[in-house]
Design a protein around this nucleic acid. Structure first.
Lengths: 116, 116
DNA sequence: GGCATATTCAACCATCCGGTTGACGATCCG
DNA sequence: CGGATCGTCAACCGGATGGTTGAATATGCC
């Protein structure tokens, strides 16, 4: 349980992995397609996907030689609940979030993953 | 902005640091008192507090020779919003959270920080 | 002043993390 | 079959992370 929070938060701490999750929010994707917009190697992306899967944030299903990655947003619930306990945040402004996501996606797709 | 998410999530990925935040939820605390229930050295706790402060999750104020640590839950808002975008989680059950927190606090205070 | 307390600093160590490259197994297709 | 594509594995590397210890700094107290 605590372990799950460890791995979920650790998985979310990397901008490449957050970008991947954001991409998967739009649709399921094959590993190669996930890797396409990034500048790093396919193996690196494969590792990131392994970490996300380990945290339960995505699932992977092999169909033919293609492995399809699917977002599993339920894995975020525990972490979300934990965080919400620290403040009565006002209801989430989903429009603002949408705009933010578009920005993040644009970043990834135009320039590759953001530098640190 | 992305940097902030990086540091916030990374800070939350460690169980000792989450336990510290939970303790600070109850009240402001001096560094020595924060360190008391843990088995590790004061210097280690001091480092953890530095990381939490760097992420904006706590603030530190020196009064006399004592440094008081204060929770800054606003720093969680960005991360919380980011996560909420991934699912329409039902309204948080604050009672359940309260019970969970009591469990976590009890763990820390009775046995020291949980092992991994 | 001189000692005790509170906290950080600095150096060190083992391990983890994020990336690379090259080889490998699996699958599709002509 | 043989070649191309998909994805992972293994070994390696540099830098970050989480911990230690011992010295240093700053403040409070007698």
């Amino acid at each position: 349980m605590t372990l799950r929070l460890d791995t979920v938060f650790a998985a979310l701490a990397d901008p490449t992995r957050r970008a991947i999750l954001t991409m998967l929010l739009e649709d399921d994707m094959a590993v190669t397609d996930v890797a396409a917009p990034f500048e790093m190697s396919l193996a690196a992306i494969s590792k990131h996907l392994g970490i996300l899967a380990e945290a339960g944030l995505i699932s992977r299903e092999k169909r033919g030689r293609v492995i399809w990655c699917k977002l599993e947003p339920d894995a975020l619930r525990g972490a979300s609940v934990w965080m919400q306990g620290f403040g009565q945040f006002e209801p989430v402004d989903l429009d603002a979030f949408e705009r933010f996501l578009e920005g993040e996606l644009a970043e990834v797709q135009e320039e590759g993953p953001e530098e640190r």
